[in-house]
Amino acid sequence: VDNKFNKEQQNAFYEILHLPNLNEEQRNAFIQSLKDDPSQSANLLAEAKKLNDAQA
Rank of each mutant, 00 (worst) to 15 (best):
Q55R: 01
E15A: 07
S33V: 09
D2A: 05
Q40L: 11
N3R: 01
E25H: 12
D37I: 07
E15P: 01
K35M: 12
S33Y: 07
E47A: 09
N28A: 11
E15T: 12
I31T: 09
A29C: 14
A56Q: 15
K35N: 12
E24F: 04
Q32N: 11
E24N: 14
N21W: 15
P38T: 04
D2W: 02
A48F: 02
F30A: 07
A29P: 02
L17Q: 14
Q55W: 15
N6T: 04
P38A: 11
L44C: 09
Q9F: 08
D37T: 13
Q26H: 04
A12L: 06
K49G: 05
A46V: 14
H18D: 10
L22K: 00
F30I: 03
D53N: 13
N52D: 07
S33W: 08
A29G: 11
L45K: 04
D36Q: 08
Q9Y: 10
E24R: 04
S39A: 10
N6L: 02
I31G: 03
D37K: 09
L44N: 03
I16V: 07
L44V: 07
V1Q: 08
F13A: 08
H18V: 08
L44M: 05
L17F: 05
L45P: 00
A12M: 04
D36E: 09
D37Y: 06
P38F: 04
A42P: 11
Y14M: 15
F13T: 08
S41K: 02
P20A: 03
N11A: 08
A12F: 07
D53C: 07
P38H: 10
L51A: 14
F13W: 12
E47N: 04
I31D: 01
N21V: 02
A29K: 13
A56K: 03
N21G: 04
Q26N: 06
N28E: 10
E8R: 01
F5M: 03
N21I: 02
N3M: 02
E24I: 06
N6E: 15
K50E: 15
E25Q: 14
K7M: 10
Q55F: 11
K35E: 08
V1R: 02
A42V: 12
Q9K: 00
S39M: 12
A48L: 02
L44T: 12
N52Y: 02
D36C: 09
D2C: 08
L44F: 09
A48W: 01
L22E: 00
F13L: 06
N3A: 03
K4H: 14
A42S: 06
R27I: 14
A54V: 10
Y14P: 01
S41E: 01
A42L: 15
A48I: 02
N21P: 00
K7N: 13
N11D: 10
K49P: 00
K50D: 08
Y14V: 05
K7F: 11
D37F: 05
N11E: 15
A46P: 01
N11P: 02
E24K: 11
L44S: 03
L44A: 14
L34K: 00
S33A: 15
A46L: 10
Q40W: 09
L22P: 00
Q32M: 12
N52E: 03
N23S: 03
I31A: 11
N52T: 02
N23H: 15
K4A: 13
H18L: 13
L22G: 00
L17H: 06
K7S: 14
N6S: 02
A48M: 02
D37Q: 06
Q10K: 06
Q10F: 04
L51T: 12
E25R: 08
A29E: 06
P38L: 07
N52W: 01
Q40N: 05
A12E: 04
E15S: 10
N23E: 05
V1I: 11
N6F: 02
N21Q: 09
A29H: 09
Q40H: 11
Q40P: 02
N23Y: 07
Q9V: 08
L51G: 02
K4Q: 09
S33C: 13
V1G: 10
L44P: 01
L34C: 08
Q40D: 12
I16R: 00
H18E: 15
S33N: 07
S39Q: 06
Q40C: 09
K7L: 04
N21L: 07
D53W: 03
N3P: 03
E47M: 06
N3C: 07
K49S: 12
N6G: 04
L51V: 13
E8V: 00
P38M: 09
D37W: 09
F13E: 05
E8D: 08
A29I: 07
A56R: 01
D53A: 04
Y14A: 06
V1D: 07
R27F: 04
P38Q: 03
L45W: 03
Q55V: 14
L51K: 10
N3Y: 00
N28L: 13
R27A: 07
E15R: 05
R27V: 14
N23G: 15
